[in-house]
């Protein structure tokens, strides 16, 4: 969305239509009306000099063809939906706490009844208790409004808590995807295994978090073959030469790893922290 960024290749399909490289007139129809966005930090995404109600009104009037007199009712409705006191629409963004501000962001995204809501790290900046509240709201809304939600996050516990399906990406490529239960409980790609190790788990003793050694590659000059190979404890010589294809099994669980068929054994080995040492 940044003006300097562009879609270099591939395809983005939305409601049956190709929208990668679609002309502005097509995008104009889709943006916010069918597809809305919740930013990582609503603090920066809300204009500091306008009351939040005003900013929702702007969308309703300019994009939703609402009549001015219907606006207050709709805003009150949206505020109640996300668990905010409708009176607070007369406050400025800086007067809200972090969690409340994310709720404003969600209300704003829901303004025109979109079919899809994309949330970029929607709770990362919040403390854990507030995270839970906001995520509960999201879950509830998703069910009630028959809404599709894409959450972009680094936090596996968020995925585990709210998502149905997950796509794991590494260095700009999809490495694994499938139902959350399948992917998190029986990961096939070593990166996903590493990720599940690197996050706290109620079932595991504290203090056994295992980081993945190394750092992501320079995307201007990605390594040949599998992009994860340089950091992968299970990498074989062929991994550095051949790019693994994304292979989907009968359950819809896909992974891009040359050793996918050895997954059960690798999972066993991946539990050993020594494996992940640099």
């Amino acid at each position: 969305m940044s003006r300097s960024a562009r879609v270099a290749g591939g395809s983005i399909r939305f409601e049956g239509k190709e929208i990668a490289g679609a002309p502005p007139s097509v995008m104009q129809e889709i943006l916010w009306r069918r597809m809305a966005f919740v930013p990582q930090s609503a603090m920066n995404a809300l204009d500091p000099v306008y009351r939040v109600g005003k900013q929702i009104e702007e969308v309703l009037v300019h994009r939703g063809n609402y009549r001015r007199e219907d606006v207050p009712k709709r805003i009150a409705e949206l505020f109640e939906m996300v668990g905010l006191n409708p009176k607070r629409q007369n406050d400025y963004p800086h007067q809200f706490s972090g969690g409340m501000r994310q709720r404003v962001g969600i209300a704003l995204a829901l303004a025109l009844n979109p079919a899809l809501m994309i949330a970029d790290e929607p709770v990362t900046a919040l403390d854990v208790i507030v995270q839970r509240q906001v995520l509960d709201t999201l879950k509830d809304l998703q069910r009630r409004l028959n809404l599709s939600v894409i959450i972009v996050t680094h936090d596996i516990s968020v995925v585990a808590y709210v998502c149905d399906r997950v796509v794991v990406m590494y260095a700009g490529e999809v490495v694994e995807s499938g139902k959350v239960k399948d992917v998190l409980e029986q990961p096939v790609h070593p990166y996903t295994m590493g990720l599940t190790n690197a996050f706290p788990d109620l079932g595991r003793a504290a203090g056994t978090l295992v980081p993945i050694a190394g750092s992501p590659p320079d995307l201007r000059d990605p390594p040949p073959g599998c992009r994860f190979a340089p950091r992968c404890p299970f990498a074989e010589p062929r991994c550095a030469q051949t790019s693994p294809p994304l292979v989907t099994d009968e359950k819809g669980h896909a992974a891009a790893c040359l050793r996918a068929n050895e997954a059960p054994m690798l999972r066993e080995q991946a539990r050993d922290p020594a494996r992940w040492a640099a």
Binding site: M1, L31, N44
Partner: peptide, 13 residues
């Protein structure tokens, strides 16, 4: 600023 980018994403004139 993010809020200008957001305004763009909202499809505002």
């Amino acid at each position: 600023e993010d809020f200008v980018m957001m305004a763009r994403m909202k499809g505002l004139p």
